[in-house]
Amino acid sequence: MDAQPEEPVRRRLTRAETKARTRALLLDAAARTFARKGFTGASVEEIAEAAGFSTGALYSNFSSKEALFLELLSDRRRDRLAAAAQALDSHGAGTAEAVTELGRLLVNVADKDIEFAALQAEFWLYAIRNPQVMGALADSARESHQALEGLVAAAMARRGAPERVSAQAVATVVAALFIGLVRQRRVDPDCVSEELFGQALNWLFTGINAEDADGD
């Protein structure tokens, strides 16, 4: 009788890998549950059940429902920043190609992430009524703001922007511009074209350099 082929031995996950897998499943379940019931309507029990875990497993990974939502929000920020960084690395800041890619990024966020936009608005109102949650929201945003600041600083250096101009301040303006244009496109798509965000960034950086020239 021919020998049967041995089944491949499955490697046991390390503790860190198991924890990462559990967190990923909880985040996926949270995204689905929040989308279906809203932030305030969803419970930690429903999220844990949807992920196939106990509430104890949820709380061992996330301190609260708010912390779970903030992690989802951070994931989306990281994805957007990674896409922006790829566009700048591939084409170079200020090029027509980079402007086009950044414009597409804004349009994709505005047009294809409507469900999460409603959740963000709900969570914003919840945070306004709960100052400790607003503090956690601010803390969560700082990581992505620092990453954006790095992209802005690199773009400013490539464009020869004056050193006295704060990359942190410019990053704040860029973030506000992105958020504002996303919201405006959702209200009135015709007034925010695919090219507008990239063009606005060019106007911003051109103005920074022009101010330095006037000072000379």
Rank of each mutant, 00 (worst) to 15 (best):
A67G: 07
R129E: 14
V109Y: 10
F69G: 01
V99Q: 15
A141Q: 11
S74Y: 10
A157H: 13
V173N: 03
D89A: 15
P131E: 04
E143M: 07
Q168C: 06
Y126D: 02
A57Q: 11
A153P: 02
A30G: 14
Y126H: 13
E149D: 05
G52D: 13
E71V: 11
T40V: 12
V44G: 04
R104S: 08
D28H: 11
E122R: 02
E143R: 08
M156T: 01
E66I: 02
A35P: 03
R158Q: 12
D139A: 15
D113T: 14
D79T: 14
V170Y: 03
A171D: 02
E122F: 01
A83Y: 13
T33K: 03
P162A: 15
V152K: 01
E115I: 12
R164F: 12
R76P: 05
T100P: 01
M134T: 06
S60W: 08
E49Y: 12
T55C: 04
G41I: 08
S43D: 11
E101R: 12
V133P: 00
A138Y: 06
A51Y: 08
A117I: 00
R36F: 02
Q168V: 06
G160S: 09
L73Y: 14
E149M: 11
V44Q: 12
G38T: 10
R80T: 15
L148K: 07
M156K: 02
S140E: 05
A136K: 13
G135I: 01
P131D: 03
A83E: 15
G160F: 08
T40Q: 15
L26V: 02
A35V: 06
E122S: 03
A118H: 06
A96H: 15
L105G: 12
A121T: 14
A127N: 03
A161V: 05
R159C: 00
L68N: 04
A93S: 13
S90A: 15
S140N: 13
Q120M: 09
R104A: 10
E163Y: 09
F62P: 01
L148W: 06
V44T: 15
V99D: 09
R142F: 05
A31I: 01
G94K: 04
L105C: 07
R158G: 02
Y59P: 05
V107R: 09
V173G: 00
A85C: 05
H145D: 14
S63V: 08
S140F: 00
Y59F: 13
S60A: 15
H91P: 06
L27W: 01
V107C: 06
L119N: 03
D75H: 14
I47Y: 05
L88P: 09
K65H: 05
R142E: 08
S64R: 07
Q132D: 14
S144M: 06
T40D: 15
R76W: 09
V165S: 06
L70I: 10
V99A: 14
A87S: 13
R164W: 09
S166L: 05
A31S: 07
A93N: 03
W124C: 02
W124Y: 06
A136G: 01
T100N: 10
